[in-house]
């Protein structure tokens, strides 16, 4: 079965539904599936729930779907860079479920591994633990967190082969790996699709079994905080 599609709109054709749960990769604006997010915006699909560490900025990343009111709920660990997000949340238009960052990553990993729940120390004694089962092992309390089983995963990788084997680049790997595993369908955008056989099998970060559709495209790859040092300081 052919996994390579011509563009983001074609790769999402027949996949998007109002009210669906989408797991998205990326950390801040690093490694976000920017082409697929733009195509979701163009599709007009609405009432979406996103499991995504962040919500982008006002005009990039998931922020573009907040502007068009296509997002009903966010499951995130940090949303501090987005004024429109804050406005919609404080006015009650947008639901927000805060997850500690590691809990969110592990919920995705668990969902992808068929694990419906796991216990963790993270959040014990905080608002995160409210309403959750507590279990004690060796004198230490742990809370039950649930795996995320998403309808769709949208992911950005560096390179793919035609069978969907993926290689990420530097810290752009982040949530893309766990997010890719926890969706019923996983659509991936990459900077380069290479012929099958040209990637070193020992260097594959995510095997193609998790990947259903792939597109190649041009990425803006916006930098959120450009920090540098002067050469004299070296």
């Amino acid at each position: 079965m052919k996994k390579v599609y011509a563009n983001a709109a074609e790769a999402l054709d027949g996949v998007l539904k109002d009210g669906m749960l989408i797991a998205a990769g990326g950390f801040g604006l690093c490694g976000i599936p920017e082409l697929l997010l733009e195509a979701i915006k163009q599709s007009g699909v609405k009432d979406l729930t996103f499991a995504s560490n962040n919500a982008g900025v006002d005009d990039f990343g998931i922020g573009i779907l907040l502007q068009t009111r296509q997002v009903k709920k966010m499951i995130s660990s940090y949303v501090g860079e987005n004024a429109e997000f804050m406005r919609q949340y404080l006015s009650g238009e947008l639901e927000l479920e805060f997850n500690p960052q590691g809990t969110l990553a592990e919920r995705m990993r668990a969902g992808g591994a068929g694990i419906p729940g796991f216990y963790t120390k993270t959040g014990v004694g905080t608002v995160i633990a409210e309403g959750k089962e507590v279990k004690n092992w060796n004198g230490q309390d742990y809370i039950l967190e649930e795996g995320i089983f998403a309808d769709l995963s949208i992911v950005k990788a560096w390179k793919a082969d035609e069978t969907g084997n993926l290689i990420f680049r530097k810290t752009a790997r982040n949530f893309n790996h766990p997010a890719a595993t926890c969706g019923k369908i996983c659509v991936v955008e990459v900077e380069e699709i290479v012929p099958t056989g040209s990637l070193d099998p020992d260097s594959i970060h995510l095997p193609g079994i998790y990947v259903h559709r792939i597109i190649q495209g041009q990425h803006e790859k916006r930098i959120e905080q450009r920090t540098t040092r002067k050469r004299e300081e070296a």
Binding site: N53, R173, F175, Q225, T227, T228
Partner: peptide
């Protein structure tokens, strides 16, 4: 990084551009 050598794929948890070292290893969030 030095000016002009910023890499959008290489940031810290504060979303600032940074650099790698000889012993650097990358991995996913989980």
């Amino acid at each position: 990084p030095y000016e002009g050598e910023e890499d959008a794929d290489l940031i810290n948890a504060g979303k600032q551009t940074i650099t790698e070292l000889p012993q650097t290893a990358y991995f996913d969030s989980a």
